Computed example of a mutant assay.
Amino acid sequence: MTDKKTIALITGGGSGIGLATARLFTNKGFKVILAGRDRDRLQAACDHLPGTIALPLDVTDSAAVTLAFSNLASQAQTPDILVNNAGAAKTAPFHRISVADWQAALDVNLTGAFLCTQAVLPTMKKAGYGRIITVASTAGLKGYAYTAAYTAAKHGVIGMTRALALEIAGSGVTANTVCPGFTDTDIVRKSIDNIVEKTGRSTDDAMHELTRHNPAGRLIRPEEVADAIYWLARPEADAMNGQAIAVAGGEVM
């Protein structure tokens, strides 16, 4: 690496794990680029994190991703660290998952990570340094009922990362995944609302349905996931490659 300020690009950076990671990286002195589809949310996040840059981007759009990373390269803003955090989860019984919903889950959770990784990898390899960290899920290490599309996508992300890690070993670039359990984010809050709406159960009961998976009996905090991401992003983490690290209170061992 050179002595230039380390640049980190975080997709899905406007809220939840992405925002917590952006806050930590900013505090550690990194230059942070927040990417996401919601312009207002991105700008609000940047307003609270001085020095960060908002990058409106739909990671499922191949042409848009190519253009965005090309523009960053032309401005000498190519990321040293890529955090693939953009994701979405929609629950449904297996027999009720439409092809459109199946494809949408793969697009944002898997293909988006593939496109961004492919766009940034050549420059990282040329520089001899880079960190690619993809936020997967414990759903990528096991299964959860009513989440077949999301679970398939997260298994795919972990498999993709393991294959990539073997290709880039020794290049100075590493690729890893972080696998949070149920985390206190908008996605999980929507899942709780969905359980309440479809089952008539109370919010407390719906919360218990999710927290029972964690031996500690609670949701994971976004900041705890951000800490794991930061650990993998450090130059000292060069020996970490192809790993799927669970941040789940002991749910997965």
Rank of each mutant, 00 (worst) to 15 (best):
53 I>H: 14
44 A>C: 06
157 V>K: 12
237 A>N: 02
54 A>P: 10
198 K>H: 14
94 F>A: 06
107 D>M: 01
97 I>L: 14
101 D>Y: 00
178 V>I: 12
126 K>D: 09
252 V>G: 00
142 K>F: 11
222 P>N: 03
88 A>Y: 14
188 V>T: 10
199 T>R: 08
161 T>P: 10
74 S>A: 13
212 R>H: 11
109 N>L: 08
23 R>P: 00
83 V>Q: 05
51 G>V: 01
174 T>Y: 13
131 R>K: 15
62 S>W: 08
174 T>S: 14
207 M>N: 14
70 S>T: 15
197 E>K: 12
29 G>T: 03
200 G>I: 10
170 G>L: 07
103 Q>V: 00
137 S>I: 07
81 I>D: 11
201 R>S: 13
121 L>N: 08
165 A>M: 07
34 L>K: 01
60 T>V: 05
85 N>E: 04
103 Q>S: 10
164 L>W: 12
71 N>K: 13
247 V>T: 06
181 G>A: 09
152 A>G: 11
222 P>F: 11
57 L>C: 09
139 A>M: 08
233 A>F: 11
252 V>W: 14
65 V>S: 00
172 G>T: 05
212 R>G: 00
73 A>T: 05
104 A>I: 04
239 A>Y: 14
111 T>W: 07
253 M>V: 03
138 T>E: 01
109 N>F: 07
93 P>F: 07
202 S>P: 08
1 M>S: 15
2 T>E: 14
40 D>E: 14
181 G>C: 06
146 Y>L: 01
225 V>L: 05
38 D>Y: 07
219 L>T: 09
148 A>M: 10
245 I>T: 00
37 R>S: 04
116 C>H: 09
234 R>P: 05
1 M>A: 13
23 R>C: 01
5 K>E: 12
154 K>G: 04
199 T>L: 09
137 S>K: 11
53 I>Q: 15
3 D>S: 13
156 G>V: 05
64 A>I: 02
246 A>N: 05
26 T>F: 03
27 N>K: 15
2 T>I: 03
78 T>Q: 10
10 I>V: 08
218 R>C: 14
11 T>H: 07
144 Y>E: 06
192 I>L: 12
54 A>E: 04
238 D>Q: 12
191 S>C: 04
244 A>K: 03
51 G>N: 05
152 A>V: 08
230 Y>H: 15
219 L>K: 07
